[in-house]
């Protein structure tokens, strides 16, 4: 066996470097998978204890409107109905998304199609800055500006879904905008050229060609915005009123899943029913964000025509 044949059949330094690199990657992936599984297991086991250990019926939990974990009703069941929180959470999320989308799209179209390079250079950091502002600051501004404003205009306390929606609107605007800009910019230049060369106006080109082919990306942007709104706790808690009641209108105090969690989690004892009930709320939040994430994947896959 000559030297070359021997070298061909033995492992060299490069081979071991390869193993080492792969090893590190797998280790990191393993850690993250472990972490996610632990979180899922922890929340699920705690959240399901309400139903398995404390014998609350799932249907009651999802449809009843009284939230009073300490008390027991006439039939001996604990009074745990999460419907008000679920309804409020969905209301603020959907309303915020509905209000934010047109504004975000407008800004995104301006940035991707109209503004000069310099304009984009100025706008981009402004929008990124909005993402970076801590939620407590948004909540504080909401508390000192929006709540009094709503109180003056509509009466009542000023706390409620409307205030929550307005705060969330500002918070998810940059998310939807920057993701939409990316998706508009990824529409190939030759689509625009083809459209213009056919005598289409700029507006026709944007509306019928660019926006059409960016739809999956824009929907993804909206869903990411909704995920952020759904999971936002602090800012919402500061303006929503924190009353565990079925919302009667947009300006009556209410409480979302997240705001209920942040308000109450410090006041309950680990392992008791009131604590488990809060974990059940967390489980709903987790499931919702899973569903939203899957929706994003699904839209991404359906993608283009």
């Amino acid at each position: 066996m000559d030297d070359i044949q021997k070298k061909l059949q033995t492992k060299s330094k490069a081979t071991f470097q390869d193993y080492f690199g792969k090893g590190i990657c797998y280790l990191c992936i393993g850690l993250i998978i472990l972490l996610v599984t632990c979180i899922l297991y922890f929340i699920a086991s705690k959240g399901l204890a309400t139903f398995t250990k404390n014998h609350v019926r799932v249907l009651d939990f999802l449809t009843k409107t009284n939230w009073n974990p300490g008390a027991i009703d006439a039939k001996g069941h604990p009074d745990i109905g999460a419907l008000p929180m679920i309804v409020t959470s969905f209301s603020v999320t959907l309303l915020a998304a509905i209000i934010a989308t047109p504004f975000a799209l407008g800004v995104a179209i301006f940035m991707a199609e109209f503004s000069s390079k310099r304009g984009t250079k100025i706008l981009q950091p402004v929008i990124e800055l909005l993402v970076g502002i801590p939620s407590v600051v948004y909540g504080f501004i909401g508390l000192s500006v929006i709540v009094p404003f709503i109180r003056n205009v509509f009466g009542g306390t000023g706390f409620g879904i409307l205030s929550g929606t307005l705060v969330l609107f500002v918070m998810i605007l940059p998310t939807i905008t920057s993701l939409s800009v990316d998706s508009l910019k990824s529409v190939p230049m030759y689509y625009r050229q083809a459209s213009l060369a056919l005598g289409a106006t700029r507006w026709q080109t944007i509306y019928k060609v660019v926006l059409r082919s960016a739809i999956p990306g824009i929907l993804t942007a909206i869903i990411f915005g909704m995920a952020r709104a759904f999971g936002e706790a602090l800012a919402v808690q500061m303006v929503i009123g924190n009353a565990t009641l079925m919302p009667k209108n947009l300006i009556s105090p209410a409480s979302t899943l997240t705001s209920k969690l942040t308000t109450d989690i410090g006041n309950t004892v680990m392992g008791t029913l009131p604590n488990n009930a809060l974990w059940s709320l967390a489980l709903i939040l987790l499931l919702m964000s899973l569903i939203l994430n899957m929706l994003v994947k699904f839209i991404g896959k359906r993608g283009r025509f």
């Binding site: 030759y190 689509y191 050229q193 005598g199 283009r304």
Partner: peptide, 25 residues
């Protein structure tokens, strides 16, 4: 009218590609 170097149909159906400009007009 103009035709480009790389074929650049829209991500639409054949029919919509043709009538796109007509409808715009």
């Amino acid at each position: 009218g103009m035709v480009f170097q790389r074929p650049n149909p829209f991500a639409k159906s054949i029919k919509e590609n043709i009538i796109f400009a007509l409808k715009n007009a």
